[in-house]
Design a protein around this nucleic acid. Structure first.
Lengths: 227, 227
DNA sequence: TAATAAAGTGAATACTGATTCACACTTAGT
DNA sequence: ACTAAGTGTGAATCAGTATTCACTTTATTA
């Protein structure tokens, strides 16, 4: 059977998608052109009609991930107005991103990619730096409201923000989904916001014994927080 | 020139060390028997006098790392008495471990290793779980002193503890040492201990609403608590 | 419709890396 | 010193994988 002819833009998209999916399943090291070819439904050599090399594929995968990360930041800015809530929402979006595509945590803050050459390492580093920078800005904006302690380094907080999910994501993948990453994210956010909270004023933001609503977090915490 | 005959136990140790060093430099995927052979000073086929396969080498490397991690916990218990200080010290030891051997963060919470087969994945998962468990115990002990808030999940805190360094370690490696991991660890610990600290300004030794179960944290309402 | 570009295919190439094997040297025990 | 086990070596094997190429099939367009 022969694969139906498909325009190169579409195939490029398919190939990038397949590559990301494969990375999610087999890791970056397990990515092979034969694998993506099989996933897409063409023969290995056919890949080279749309990409000059395997390296080029990895590059567009990186770009794709970078776009999605920054897209989340953008989305959060549009959907939510309160800075702290924006961070919370960003965490949930990040979680969703990871859940729907396990390949991402294997690339972001993974290591095999940039282990080799300087070019790709720099690319990934910039990608993460950009994301961290956006997060740090969100933290600064939260501090500007006065409800967040001003004496925390936004940069350090941003790295910690990443640390809220990244190890959990790996545990989640390692345990074949047994590790409850959703619950961890919930707890982690509570602790994180607790950490950022201005200590003097006992705000309603994290009431240790407020009205304890058993809202299930995870999928649908997004709706209707802000008018 | 011929490598001097060396007893297999010594060579096994050398090989494991070399493998860990190589992982630190080239990543797990970049580990090759030729590489370790070269590092040790023998010819590739010579490796097979001491290990049956490359897989077996990776296994002892994992065991070595596991031992060092738990060894740090042990050391902390001996050196320091205050539970919270123990956590602080553990963070610094972990930092040193990473600094002196970059291979460790590439294995712990890396992904290429367990990507393939289930056996190794389980092994790494157990290794991390054990470590996390020890950390969680330290958190519980800190809570028992009363100076640490009882309403945080020790398990979540343990994962976050890992998250304090792991992303930073990767950034550090990626940036060729430009990223100041020491400073980050310092900041991160301040924030982390801040997070765990009993809010003394609010109320004294007892939690505001009496003892709560550690498994259930008072949940933050999803909507509408802000004016 | 004919011509031409685009997309797909299978075989062939080249390289890398793990593993095996027959043989050489070293060391320990008698 | 003799022998046997232990250790080291180089060549060879085997498998996987990226990449190229000549050719075929499909789509576009003049």
């Amino acid at each position: 059977m022969r694969a139906p002819n498909t325009k190169t833009e579409v195939r490029q998209e398919q190939i990038a998608q397949a590559a990301l999916a494969l990375i999610g399943r087999n890791g970056v090291a397990g990515l092979s052109v034969a694998g993506v070819a099989n996933e897409v439904g063409v023969v290995p050599s056919g890949i080279y009609r749309h990409f000059r090399s395997k390296d080029e594929i990895l590059d567009v995968v990186l770009d794709m991930i970078s776009q999605r990360l920054l897209g989340n930041v953008q989305a959060v800015r549009v959907e939510v107005s309160d800075p702290l809530d924006r961070l919370h929402r960003l965490l949930l979006l990040h979680l969703e991103l990871i859940r729907s595509n396990g390949g991402i945590p294997r690339v972001v803050l993974s290591e095999e990619i940039f282990a080799g050459q300087g070019r790709r390492r720099l690319k990934v580093y910039r990608m993460i730096s950009n994301y961290l920078n956006e997060v740090a800005i969100l933290v600064r904006e939260a501090q500007a409201t006065g409800r967040t302690r001003p004496d925390v380094s936004p940069d350090a907080a941003a790295v910690m923000f990443l640390g809220l999910i990244q190890p959990a994501a790996i545990l989640w993948m390692m345990s074949d989904g047994k590790f409850d990453i959703g619950q961890h994210a919930e707890h982690a956010w509570q602790l994180f916001s607790l950490m950022l909270a201005q200590p003097e004023t006992a705000r309603a933001a994290t009431p240790p014994c407020g009205p304890q609503k058993k809202t299930t977090i995870g999928k649908k915490g997004e709706a209707g927080e802000r008018p």
